[in-house]
């Protein structure tokens, strides 16, 4: 497994979306546990980047995109999130 494979995680949230904050916190916690600096996290307000969100297939928030692929359409559990990140790293 190449150690320097960059993983970009994008969390799509919206104003007033309570679940979005929780999803963001979950991802932050998981990234801290993984301790991998090659993983970049970005939080995106869908209203600011509507075209991009729609092109990715996002229909609700929170949604989590990993390396340009819509992976979660709701807040995942820790295990599923870790697995998805590691899968992308191994590609």
């Amino acid at each position: 497994m190449p150690d320097n494979t960059i993983v970009i995680i994008e969390i799509f949230s919206a104003p007033g979306c309570n679940k979005c904050g929780k999803a963001f916190q979950l991802v932050q916690t998981v990234l801290k546990e993984l301790g991998d600096e090659s993983i970049n996290l970005r939080r995106i307000n869908v209203v600011d980047e509507l075209d991009y969100a729609v092109a990715l297939g996002i229909r609700a928030t929170p949604s989590i995109v990993i390396n340009g692929v819509l992976v979660f359409t709701t807040t995942p559990d820790t295990e599923a999130l870790c697995k998805a990140i590691l899968t992308q790293q191994n590609r």
């Binding site: 919206a14 104003p15 209203v47 509507l50």
Partner: peptide, 29 residues
Amino acid sequence: TLRNELTLLVNLCTGSGEGCPIIEGIEKS
């Protein structure tokens, strides 16, 4: 594309406790 965009905006409205992001989205576009 329009349908998908509106679906997203309507879902945001449903789940939002702070007004309706549809208006904000339309203003931005």
